[in-house]
Lab assay of single mutants.
Amino acid sequence: HTCEKCSTSIANQAVRIQEGRYRHPGCYTCADCGLNLKMRGHFWVGDELYCEKHAR
């Protein structure tokens, strides 16, 4: 898989955010504040991922 955020190959663990879309665990972050979304879930606003606070 290729990380959709940093565009590099994912060798080990990948986070599947949608069918066919993956990120490194470290790239699974809010587009606004950079908070890691692991164990928090994500919210779509347009084509970007946000934490609950910044999705509003």
Rank of each mutant, 00 (worst) to 15 (best):
T2F: 06
I17W: 02
E4Y: 13
Q18H: 03
S7W: 02
C51I: 03
G46Y: 12
G46D: 07
V15Q: 09
D47Q: 10
S9L: 01
C27P: 04
R40C: 15
C33R: 00
V15E: 15
G26Y: 14
E48L: 10
A14H: 06
A31C: 08
I17A: 05
L35M: 13
R40P: 14
K5R: 15
N36Y: 07
S7P: 02
R23G: 03
E48A: 09
C51D: 02
N36L: 08
R21E: 06
C6P: 05
T29A: 09
C51Y: 00
V15I: 09
K5F: 03
G20K: 11
T8D: 15
D32R: 14
S9R: 05
K5L: 12
T29M: 05
S9N: 10
H42L: 14
Q13H: 01
Y50I: 07
G41D: 10
Q13G: 13
H42Q: 11
V45S: 09
G41W: 01
T29Y: 08
K38P: 11
D32F: 12
N36C: 09
R21H: 11
N12T: 14
W44G: 13
E19D: 04
S9A: 14
V15F: 04
F43I: 10
R21P: 09
L37A: 02
E48N: 14
E52M: 08
R16S: 13
P25F: 03
T29E: 03
H24N: 05
A14R: 03
E48G: 13
Q18N: 06
C30G: 02
I17Q: 02
C3P: 00
M39R: 12
A31N: 13
H1A: 06
Y50P: 00
L49E: 04
Y28V: 08
K38D: 15
K38S: 13
P25E: 15
N36E: 13
H54M: 00
T8Q: 13
C30Q: 01
C27Q: 06
R23F: 04
A14T: 03
N36I: 09
V45L: 10
T8C: 08
F43C: 13
C51N: 00
H1Q: 01
C27V: 02
W44D: 12
R40H: 15
V45G: 13
R23A: 09
F43Q: 06
G41V: 04
N36T: 09
T29D: 15
T8L: 11
G34N: 13
K53Q: 12
Q13V: 05
E52H: 04
V15W: 00
R21C: 10
V45R: 13
N36Q: 15
Q18T: 10
E19V: 03
